[in-house]
Design a binder for these strands. Structure first.
Lengths: 199, 199
DNA sequence: CTGTCTGTCTACCAGGTGGTAGACAAACCT
DNA sequence: AGGTTTGTCTACCACCTGGTAGACAGACAG
């Protein structure tokens, strides 16, 4: 029982994503995580030298997972730009809705520590740039209505995160979005984005 | 110097809004607040019996301020529904942008403590209901295009908060919204909302 | 002038925090 | 076999947290 199989690190990471996500970083103690994993706190500190580096690992893994999802969606989608855009929005939306707390964690972290925020942004950066380039390119080719690509992305990002985190923002009592359902909200959003971009 | 003038409570509240907003509730200690105000921690606990009740006071004051802003905007706006809606969106947007951290605080709180979240929601509730009623009424009168009022509000709320908190979500490096400017984003949003509602 | 009340302080505490030291058990490598 | 490495644990610590007890200084009422 002393030496576990090699999944300890992964279990710690998973539990950390859960707890940091649901309670927030500052409000989650190492003991909380250790308890969830069923391991001593010191085992955590064996795998991750400090709570800060554990947070980094959590963020990095989340970013990598999201990146993989987006890549797959892009690759699977048809070539037409509108279909591609719809696929990407849906791809981003799914994990955002399944784990809305992670978006909250991103906010908390970027408020708490500029260092973490910068690392995070650098991971997001390439995607933003690629999307910007793609939009501009398709606009130049006349496949999309001309607009400021940066503005399109900013608006889409803001809307997706806003929608995804809304039920968690004020989840206690009756609230329109709860009754309406995220899927419909998402479809409305996609319809809007596509309508705005159709040439 | 022992007895201050009556502004101590207000100063504590103000500093708490600032610090809870910028660093988050869990990451702000009573000593932090006391230090900012220039007072001993025990003076805080004289005015507010616990950190939790201080948080309640912060949230309540914020809600009251926001409510006042909205009321004023509605009263000052022209009677036409579209003008009213634009005024309300702008009114909500301004404080949301000036103190985006408060939206983050709302999220943190609703993750951390269902009790606080419920109190918060109950304060928001009447506004949501009034807005829903107003939209439905104007739609019935043919002044607005027919749509699900709840959906309109949910979408608008999500977009406003998403946009307002975006620069703070990932503020470290170059990010489209930083370059674009919130004002323009807001105007795009308003244009969209109005276009969607024009009969 | 004296007693009470209000507001602020210094001193302290119990409990929880992230983190360290080191023992030790299994596995792995000759 | 035996030594080394890897992974986990118990025990501990310095520090910080929210919160309490009580002293005390000014304001104010009689």
């Amino acid at each position: 029982m002393t030496v576990r199989r090699g999944n300890t690190r992964a279990s710690i990471l998973e539990a950390s994503v859960d707890l940091f996500g649901s309670r927030g970083f500052a409000a989650t103690s190492l003991d909380d995580i250790a308890g969830r994993v069923g391991v001593a706190k010191q085992t955590l500190l064996y795998w991750f030298p400090s709570k800060d580096e554990l947070l980094d690992a959590v963020l990095e893994q989340t970013a990598l997972e999201l990146a993989a999802v987006i890549e797959a969606a892009v690759r699977a989608a048809a070539d037409a730009p509108l279909a591609r855009i719809e696929a990407v929005v849906k791809a981003v939306f799914r994990p955002a809705v399944r784990r809305p707390a992670l978006l909250g964690l991103v906010r908390e972290v970027s408020r708490l520590s500029p260092a973490h925020a910068e690392r995070l942004t650098m991971q997001v950066q390439p995607f933003v740039r690629r999307a910007t380039d793609y939009l501009r390119e398709q606009m130049d080719a006349g496949m999309l209505r001309r607009a400021d690509p940066g503005l399109v992305i900013a608006l889409a990002y803001a809307t997706v995160t806003g929608i995804a985190t809304e039920p968690e923002a004020l989840r206690a009592v009756e609230w329109p979005v709860t009754a309406i359902g995220l899927r419909r909200l998402r479809n409305e959003l996609i319809a809007f984005v596509l309508a705005a971009l159709r040439p």
